[in-house]
Design a protein around this nucleic acid. Sequence first.
DNA 1: CCCTGACAGTCAATCGATTGCCGCTCGATC
DNA 2: GATCGAGCGGCAATCGATTGACTGTCAGGG
Lengths: 340, 340
Amino acid sequence: MDQPDGAAPAQDRKAPATIYDIARHTGVSPSTVSRALNKPGRLNPETERRIREAAKELGYRINPMARALPTGKTGTLGLIVSDITNPVYFDLVRGAERVASEAGFTLVFADSQESSELEHTTAERLQSYVDGLLLVASRLDDRRIQELSSVKPVMMVNREVPGIPAVVPDVRPGITDALGRLRRLGHRRIAYLSGPQLSWLNGQRWQTLFELAVEWDMSIVEVKSTAPTREGGAEAFQRVKAAGVSAVFAYNDLVALGLLRECREHGIDVPGRLSIIGFDDIFGADLPTPALSSIKLPLAEIGGKAVRRLLAELDGTQGGTEIVLQTEFISRESVAEPQA
Amino acid sequence: MDQPDGAAPAQDRKAPATIYDIARHTGVSPSTVSRALNKPGRLNPETERRIREAAKELGYRINPMARALPTGKTGTLGLIVSDITNPVYFDLVRGAERVASEAGFTLVFADSQESSELEHTTAERLQSYVDGLLLVASRLDDRRIQELSSVKPVMMVNREVPGIPAVVPDVRPGITDALGRLRRLGHRRIAYLSGPQLSWLNGQRWQTLFELAVEWDMSIVEVKSTAPTREGGAEAFQRVKAAGVSAVFAYNDLVALGLLRECREHGIDVPGRLSIIGFDDIFGADLPTPALSSIKLPLAEIGGKAVRRLLAELDGTQGGTEIVLQTEFISRESVAEPQA
DNA sequence: CCCTGACAGTCAATCGATTGCCGCTCGATC
DNA sequence: GATCGAGCGGCAATCGATTGACTGTCAGGG
């Protein structure tokens, strides 16, 4: 501290109490204090009580850094998402946060702005702080993820990587339901407005749609979008229109929302001329007119389960297999039978 | 580690390299390594080069815990928001994150679920991890905040507390513009659908509206909402309707959105019969029909500035006074002249 | 009466990095 | 040629908590 004396800038902070203070206060040794606080029952109940009391009195708060040094455990988990401004992550983050703090863990949180490079940097930086990492919809390649996981436990969310534990949704139920509905309404030719090539979920969605469409004898085309955002959706409008389909699935609700808005602006009737279905059922999907139909992920549950699973991994109680959660089709106004 | 031998649960993680490894590798002492890495120029350039090289080669990553112990600095900032599922925090969080990571700091992030109690617990827990705390729209009372700030630096965002540095918006420009517009359109009787009593911004908004309305000779009433959410807004519909006003400001966009939807469902024409204006201009405000007008906060900027200011506080270069940022009225379809 | 062992508490090493102080070397200065 | 000081690097203490090994005590069993 090189503060100019006499001119302490802010109020002076009192140094926090340590186990040494408590030890002095109660006339025992620091190691006894440590045990009193961490290994209930190891000590004489009376001694333990006295120590606990003194700790309370002195306002003792454990110093996590100091503890982390010998134990190697920080009590902290890292969560990296691809884009924090995507509402889809709300519930996921909250679910994760809840479970983590119930378990006495702290969540550290970062976003990679859809950049694989930035994600890597961030992951490495975070890794030295945390006990384990949650990678949500990671854009990293398998090798890099495996590297990361050779340093500290890594849990994948919404993505699968060989050898790495994961919590993922099963997109099939939701898609089956949605596509079935379209089919019954009379749609025969549909499009998939796709997302980032590096997105595992994008692959899943396309794959599943494709297989089902083929199986049900519907025709399907992929239309590429430039970005998984509202802008990306809007920008793809002409290509979707040109594809001559009666219904379109969009990679996610942001894209769907962008497309929907653009349709309206160009006087394309939704759902009359084009039915639109998004994925994720984010905040706001129900706001536009027509309200957007979407295939919903149980995000909060995914976040919670992912943390729980990572926590289990941490103390060796590994869950083993991968966890899969179901999706659900939320039908709103953006779907109807195609105009003759 | 009490792993059952022979059955190592996951792949074994290699211990990360330390300065001791580097020291051995290059034949110098650990302290020299430390200096090479932290005090460029202090050492013989050649020695420094060799050490840096070895560090790179061994994949050395500093152990933040170990560093934090002697220095007391963790390189980490805590950010607590009242409700992470409120889209208003997106940009704020992202702005904060960006500045923090540019400065080599890591953001730890938590939400208090609108609970003052939970916020307090969280703040205390976080405080032992971080160098400083950012409290966004805190629901804590002044005394508790001052307590927190006597332990480690605290920066208030969207709230003022005596003696604590803050970054806040000036709601006046946006409100003036919006209210002026209403007045010119012919509105004379307006309502404010208020938010949480503990919210400082809620107070600011009401105060400012009230003063301006009085000054401009418009009548104004406060209608209470039960929660600062869409549900809260919907739930207040009857009370707003009963108030017999031609325009309403809502505490935030979530509330406004809820109210807007409910109006539509009850066949109340917006903006014909009722003009609605929200605050924050969150994601989705432009989605409904009619699109919601809103008074926008420069959230990303607020987040960034708050972090910068806290960082300055940390190394004594305190900015001194409080930072105030301007608001802006975003006019959309939910505002029109009142029906005769 | 001695031994065993449970129990309570202490000692001291350790985690990884930082830093004040010291010592050596060497060239410049008087 | 002795002295001084700058430059370079090492020694060892320190931050706060954890933990294996150890000591001393006391009760109960053989």
